[in-house]
Amino acid sequence: MENRYASHPEAVRTFNTEKLRREFLIEDLFAADALVTVYSHVDRYIVGSAVPVSKDLVLEVPLQDIGAGYFLERREIGIINTGGPGVITADGESYEIAAKECLYIGLGVKEVVFRHRAGEESPRFYFVSTPAHHKYPTVKAAQEQATPSHLGSISSSNERTIYKYIHQDGIQSCQLVMGITELDPGNMWNTMPAHTHNRRSEVYLYFNMPEDAVVFHMMGEPDETRHLVVRNEQAVISPSWSIHSGVGTSNYTFCWAMAGENQTFDDMDGVAMKALK
């Protein structure tokens, strides 16, 4: 499991492109028949993927890295499938997970297994795990069961729908908040005007992008902005002090996950457009 350490905003002001990407961008996240995990010291996320093709994959990491007897001994996890239909087994109970469906698994589940359904396109399970203090039940949600919010307009190139899966009024969790945002065709901007939320950090996974498409992900302090060039199925770690916005060469979808002081989706510190530099 790769470790990513927290960076002070004053240090980030001095980063070149290579250093910025090394600190905040997860480039090689999905691999066939592999469990890929990244441990971020920003709010103790574990970000990862499981792509079972020819074999089952078990959710496990070196136990010395988390100081626990098994992965979910003191953690919870949210999983979203970005590929073909697959199966996730949690302590022997199986859940069929299709594209853009979400499965939350709470603290105390000892064995999680990712499976490819024979004859189908391989699933691509993306997950985010955070520390937990209370056991909540395992819950599956299809996209039509998520709480939708339609925002933006074609005139500002940001017409989009936000689907909330794990949140205060949806799937219950200790601190994890998770969902998907889909941009309508012809729209390219997300989360602009920008904001920060000093009480929570965030992780973005961009997907459903053409091979030759990119998203310019805006980050940094509002008066010291930087950008990352992000491609399909790459993720960005966004500290609480950083804006997190993007513009693509075409429309795209992204999965967002938050953790920190609270679970209030609208707890944001807005940044006026004239304040951006």
Rank of each mutant, 00 (worst) to 15 (best):
A6T: 09
E10L: 14
A11K: 15
N16K: 15
T17F: 04
E18Q: 14
K19H: 13
R21F: 07
L25Y: 02
E27G: 00
D33T: 07
A34S: 14
A34G: 00
V36K: 14
A50F: 03
V51W: 08
E60N: 04
P62N: 02
P62D: 15
L63N: 15
Q64M: 01
Q64V: 09
G67E: 03
G69V: 07
E76M: 08
E76W: 05
P85E: 11
V87Q: 12
I88P: 11
A90Q: 02
D91M: 03
G92V: 07
E96P: 06
A98D: 08
Y104M: 04
I105H: 05
G108I: 02
G108V: 00
V112W: 07
R115V: 03
E120C: 06
R124K: 10
F127V: 03
V128Y: 09
T130M: 06
T130E: 07
A132D: 06
K135T: 10
Y136F: 11
P137Q: 12
V139K: 14
A142G: 14
L151F: 11
G152E: 08
S153C: 12
I154L: 14
E159L: 10
Y165M: 04
Q168A: 05
M178F: 13
P185I: 05
P185T: 10
G186A: 03
M188S: 07
P193V: 03
N198Y: 07
N198I: 08
V203L: 13
Y204D: 10
L205Q: 06
F207T: 13
N208C: 10
M209Y: 08
A213C: 04
V214R: 11
V215E: 05
V215A: 09
G220K: 04
P222C: 03
D223T: 14
T225V: 12
H227W: 11
R231I: 02
S238W: 00
T249L: 09
N251A: 01
N251P: 05
F254L: 15
A259G: 10
N262E: 09
D267I: 09
A275W: 11
A275G: 04
A275E: 12
L276M: 03
